[in-house]
Design a protein around this nucleic acid. Structure first.
Length: 146
DNA sequence: GCCAACGTTGGC
DNA sequence: GCCAACGTTGGC
């Protein structure tokens, strides 16, 4: 799961302990939340446009997808005037697990054997949420040293 | 700030 | 359904 640290960082999640991951307005990302992200699943927390960009820590899905009410709130940054109650945007609840001592940078990910097929490293991949292979997850977790 | 690689919108 | 224009993401 990607977030710009200036917007919401691993430190913010550590402070909050858990948070509803609202504001996702991409259908593919929404479908990942709906179909593939269940309570208990492990998450890599990625800082995009960070210094450096990379995986900043670990989290866990604490509650599966529910309607993201922020889409219906005109005062919310991610308000979607076309959002429908019958076909809502979704959010999952994410729980803090660990902050890596040092961000596993994008450059480090690219340089690591066994991660070449990781989706976040694929060309043109901009989704804010994507599935991670179990093998890739273990490698990144080990690099993070948490 | 630049720009590639998208996704979305809307005219036709 | 096509596709040009536009908006967004995110690395650099």
């Amino acid at each position: 799961m990607k977030s710009e640290p200036e917007s919401y960082s691993i430190d913010d999640l550590k402070r909050d302990r858990k948070t509803w991951w609202t504001g996702v307005r991409n259908y593919q990302a929404r479908n990942f939340m709906r179909d593939d992200m269940k309570a208990g699943h492990a998450v890599l927390f990625y800082h995009s446009s960070g210094d450096p960009s990379g995986v900043a820590g670990l989290a866990r899905i604490s509650r599966g997808a529910q309607a993201d009410e922020s889409a219906l709130d005109p005062d919310d940054d991610h308000y979607d005037p076309k959002a429908l109650k019958e076909n809502p945007w979704l959010a999952v609840e994410v729980q803090f697990v660990a902050k890596f001592p040092k961000v596993v940078s994008l450059a480090e990910l690219k340089a690591t054997d066994g991660l070449s097929e990781m989706l976040v490293l694929k060309r043109g991949q901009r989704l804010s949420i994507m599935p991670v292979d179990q093998g890739h997850f273990r490698i990144v977790e080990a690099l993070g040293g948490a």
